[in-house]
Simulated assay, not measured.
Amino acid sequence: MTDQLEPMPEDWRRALAIVAHPDDLEYGCASAVAVWTAAGREVAYVLATRGEAGIDTMEPAEAGPVREREQRAGAAVAGVTEVEFLDHRDGVIEYGVALRRDMAAAIRRHRPELVITLNHEDTWGGGTHWNTPDHRAVGRAVMDAVADAGNRWIFPDIEAEPWNGVRYVAVAGTDTPTHAVDVTTGLERGVRSLLEHRAYIEALTDEDPETYVRTFVEGIARDQAARFGGRPAVTFRLFSR
């Protein structure tokens, strides 16, 4: 029997999603974000990089601004207006104290109850694909920074006051999810959100961008339906605090 997923908790108002690159959230969980913002919840995005090393046919100096514009447009489709970029170098982010500090500072600034990040395990896709160094470093730093943000004696030089109000951390794109969001009403916006990353997608595949995006976003959501009452779903591994 397939293990059933629990619904994501709803006793929160503010969420902060922290990931490495533009498009990470659109590939991961924009349909769920669209559901949340439509219900009146606040979601902000923090991107560690501008994704400047992500387009093989475009120099980083050109790609960075393009990917920033695409990220802001994709976020707006999902109902997110607050998008920050921390300007770490794409592809060479290193886990460590400096990265934890940046993540803790973001959490203190935004003061969320729910923090969202991306799969930071070694692999994804059922263990058949090796995860990227940036995903691993950022996700791990986010997990650690949730506690750092609430401890006034860790990173006392951060101007924002400590914040110990994070109740949940949700990891998207994991092979071991525990919870899910019904994205019936957010699926189309999830598709359109990823489609805003057109320059990235056109360099990635020869397939028609809309066909590629729709197949990917809808396919993943429907693959999870068997574990969530037959409803299209975006899944998360949830950690409570």
Rank of each mutant, 00 (worst) to 15 (best):
E52A: 07
E52G: 02
A53C: 02
G54Q: 03
I55H: 05
I55T: 03
I55K: 12
D56H: 13
T57Y: 05
T57N: 11
M58A: 13
E59Q: 11
P60Q: 13
A61V: 15
A61D: 15
E62W: 08
G64C: 01
P65W: 00
P65N: 10
P65Q: 06
V66D: 02
E68C: 08
E68R: 13
E68P: 00
R69T: 15
R69W: 08
E70Q: 08
G74P: 09
A76R: 10
A76I: 12
A76P: 06
V77M: 07
G79I: 09
G79H: 10
G79Q: 06
V80Y: 03
V83S: 07
V83P: 04
E84N: 09
F85N: 08
D87C: 04
H88G: 09
H88T: 11
D90Y: 08
G91D: 05
V92T: 14
I93K: 05
I93M: 05
E94A: 11
E94P: 06
E94T: 12
Y95S: 14
Y95P: 10
Y95K: 06
Y95D: 06
G96M: 13
A98N: 15
A98E: 14
A98G: 14
M103G: 01
A104M: 09
A106S: 12
A106W: 05
I107S: 01
I107M: 06
I107W: 03
R108P: 12
R109L: 03
H110E: 06
P112V: 05
P112L: 01
E113Q: 15
E113A: 13
L114W: 03
L114M: 03
V115T: 00
V115N: 01
I116Q: 07
I116V: 15
I116G: 13
I116C: 11
T117M: 10
N119V: 01
H120M: 04
E121W: 15
D122E: 14
T123A: 10
T123L: 07
W124G: 02
W124K: 05
G125S: 10
G125D: 06
G125Q: 04
G126S: 12
G127K: 09
G127T: 12
T128I: 05
T128E: 11
T128C: 12
H129G: 07
W130I: 14
T132D: 09
T132W: 02
P133Y: 12
R136L: 10
R136V: 05
A137E: 10
G139C: 06
G139N: 03
R140N: 03
R140F: 00
A141Q: 12
A141R: 06
D144E: 04
D144C: 07
D144M: 13
A145T: 10
V146T: 07
V146E: 01
D148T: 06
A149T: 00
G150P: 10
G150S: 03
N151S: 14
N151D: 15
R152D: 11
W153G: 11
I154K: 07
I154C: 04
F155K: 03
